[in-house]
Simulated assay, not measured.
Amino acid sequence: MNITALSNSELLSGIHALVGQGRVILARLLAYLAEVEERRLDLQSACSSLFDFCVRRLGLSEDEACRRVMAARLARRFPLALRLLESSSPHAFPGQPPPR
């Protein structure tokens, strides 16, 4: 892919699309992590915790693993958080425009 050949509008359009795709992927990752913990697959994978699973099996940094585990647990408790993350800003409320 040669992004230097893109026009300014193509570049800006593409970056906005990537951010949107990133939100969807992050929401799915958090849902998967929550389900791995629910099924205790982290323990079956010879890891002491979901955090350990993220670091040892998924190759996340300790900081990233900590944030992902906390977010996955929050998403398990409040499923609306995943829908908000996928659709727009995590600061938005359903039916309301995102903050300016």
Rank of each mutant, 00 (worst) to 15 (best):
V36N: 00
L41W: 07
L26G: 00
S48V: 10
Y32W: 13
D42C: 09
D42M: 00
E35I: 06
D42N: 15
R23A: 07
E62F: 01
G20C: 07
A17E: 14
R57Y: 07
L30S: 01
D52C: 01
Q21E: 15
R56Y: 08
S49T: 10
S61M: 00
L29E: 13
E64A: 12
R28H: 08
S48D: 14
I25D: 15
L26A: 07
Q44F: 13
R39E: 15
S61K: 04
V19G: 01
S49P: 11
R40D: 14
L60H: 13
V55K: 03
E35L: 14
F53Y: 15
S48K: 15
L58N: 03
G59S: 10
C54L: 09
A27C: 03
A17F: 03
L29V: 13
L58D: 04
Q21V: 00
L18A: 14
L41K: 11
R23Q: 06
L50V: 00
G20A: 10
L60E: 11
F51R: 13
R39K: 12
S48W: 11
L26C: 04
E35G: 07
D63K: 14
L26F: 01
A46Y: 06
A46M: 06
A27M: 00
F51P: 03
S49K: 05
D42K: 04
L18D: 11
S45P: 09
F53K: 04
R28E: 09
A34Q: 10
G22V: 02
S45R: 01
C47Q: 03
E64Y: 01
R40W: 06
V36Q: 04
R39A: 08
S49V: 08
G59K: 12
S45K: 02
S49L: 08
D63G: 15
R28N: 07
G59M: 07
A34D: 10
E62N: 08
D52Y: 02
L33D: 02
I25N: 12
E38S: 13
L26D: 02
D63N: 14
R40S: 13
L50G: 02
R56K: 14
S49D: 10
E62A: 06
Q44E: 12
R28S: 08
S61H: 03
L60Q: 13
Y32G: 11
A46E: 10
L43F: 09
S61Q: 04
D42V: 02
L29A: 11
S45H: 07
E37N: 07
Q44A: 14
L26T: 07
A17M: 06
G20S: 08
E62D: 12
L41Y: 08
V55N: 01
F51S: 12
F51E: 15
R57H: 12
S45V: 05
Q21T: 08
A46L: 05
L41P: 03
L29W: 03
L50Q: 05
V19A: 13
S48C: 11
R40T: 09
V36H: 00
R39D: 11
L33N: 00
G22E: 09
